[in-house]
C-alpha cells in the first residue's frame, strides 16, 4: 500500500480544517434566506466530527462550502491553512442522495474518481477492494437502476473511498440502510478511519450513530444554523453500543435538539 506520507511532502493522512465566521444565505422566492449564521470551528487532522441539527438547518449547505462547490457569502474555510476555493479530490463528499451515474455500471461509477485523476492504470485494483468493503463485490457489472436504495448508498460510499481522501465528508450516507446493515457499515467506516487516519465529517440525524462513531459532536440550532454545543466523546475504540456513557450523552444531546419531553 502506498503511504501518502512517503509520496508527498510529509502531509499527515488527515486534513486540518478551520471554519472561520461563515455566513451564507440563499434567495428563495425573491427573499434572502439566511442558512448559516457565523459558524466557526476547527477540526484537527484525523478527527471524526459528527454534525447534528434539525432538518433544513443548513448542514448540507455547510458541507457544500467545505467541498468547495460554492463560495460562502462571508467568512472563510481553510484546509491545512489554505482557503478552500474549488473542489479537490483530497476532499471527497458522499452526498445525501447517492446520485450514481445511471449510464455507468456500479464498477464504472466507483472508478469515476480514478478516471478523473488519470489513476486508472496504477490504482484500478482499489475498485474491487472498495466494492468488497461495502458488500457489493458481486454487483460490479450491474446498472444503478438495478440496485436497491441502500445498495446505491453503499456504492456511493465505495466511490468516495477509492480516492484515498484526506477529508471524507459524509452527508447522511447510511440514511437508507436497514438497521443491521447500518450498524455494520458504521463499524466499517470507523475501522477505515482508524486504519487510514483521514479526517471525517459526518452529518446524521441518528444521535446514537453520531455518538458511536465520532470523537466529537457539534450540534446546530434551527435555521439559520448556529453552533449550540460542541461535545467531545471521550471513549476509546472499539466502542460498545450498550456503554452507559452513551445513554447519558444521548439524553444531553436530545435535550440540545429540543426533545426533552420523551427523555
Amino acid at each position: 500500500m502506498v503511504n501518502p506520507a512517503t509520496t508527498e511532502t510529509a502531509l499527515p493522512a488527515g486534513m486540518a480544517l478551520e471554519i472561520d465566521g461563515i455566513r451564507h444565505a440563499f434567495t428563495l422566492e425573491g427573499r434572502p434566506l439566511p442558512v448559516l449564521d457565523d459558524v466557526s470551528f476547527s477540526v484537527e487532522p484525523g478527527e471524526f466530527v459528527a454534525l447534528l441539527g434539525p432538518s433544513g438547518c443548513g448542514k448540507s449547505t455547510l458541507l457544500r462550502l467545505l467541498a468547495g462547490l460554492e463560495p460562502p457569502d462571508h467568512g472563510e474555510a481553510r484546509a491545512d491553512g489554505v482557503a478552500i476555493t474549488a473542489p479537490d479530490p483530497s476532499r471527497v463528499v458522499v452526498f445525501q442522495d447517492p446520485t450514481l451515474f445511471p449510464w455507468r455500471t456500479v464498477r464504472a461509477n466507483v472508478a469515476l474518481g480514478l478516471e478523473a485523476q488519470g489513476l486508472m492504470k496504477t490504482r484500478a485494483y482499489r475498485i474491487d477492494e472498495a466494492l468488497e468493503r461495502v458488500g457489493l463485490g458481486a454487483f460490479g457489472n450491474v446498472y444503478p437502476h438495478q440496485l436497491s436504495g441502500g445498495m446505491a448508498q453503499r456504492a456511493a460510499l465505495a466511490r468516495a473511498l477509492v480516492n484515498d481522501p484526506r477529508l471524507l465528508i459524509l452527508d447522511e450516507p447510511l440514511g437508507k440502510l436497514d438497521s443491521l446493515t447500518r450498524m455494520s457499515m458504521q463499524s466499517e467506516i470507523v475501522d477505515l478511519w482508524r486504519r487510514d487516519g483521514f479526517t471525517t465529517l459526518l452529518v446524521t440525524h441518528d444521535v446514537e450513530e453520531a455518538l458511536f462513531m465520532a470523537t466529537r459532536v457539534i450540534v446546530f440550532s434551527e435555521r439559520p444554523a448556529r453552533i449550540t454545543a460542541d461535545i467531545a466523546i471521550a471513549r476509546d475504540y472499539p466502542r460498545h453500543r450498550s456503554d452507559p456513557y452513551f445513554a447519558d450523552l444521548k439524553r444531553r444531546v436530545f435535550g440540545l435538539l429540543g426533545m426533552d419531553a420523551t427523555w
Binding site: R91, D97, T99, L112, A116, R159, N163
Partner: peptide
C-alpha cells in the same frame, strides 16, 4: 442535473 457535475468536480474532474 447539477448533482452529476458536483460529483465529478469533487472527484477531481477537469
Amino acid at each position: 442535473g447539477g448533482a452529476y457535475y458536483d460529483i465529478a468536480r469533487t472527484l477531481g474532474g477537469s
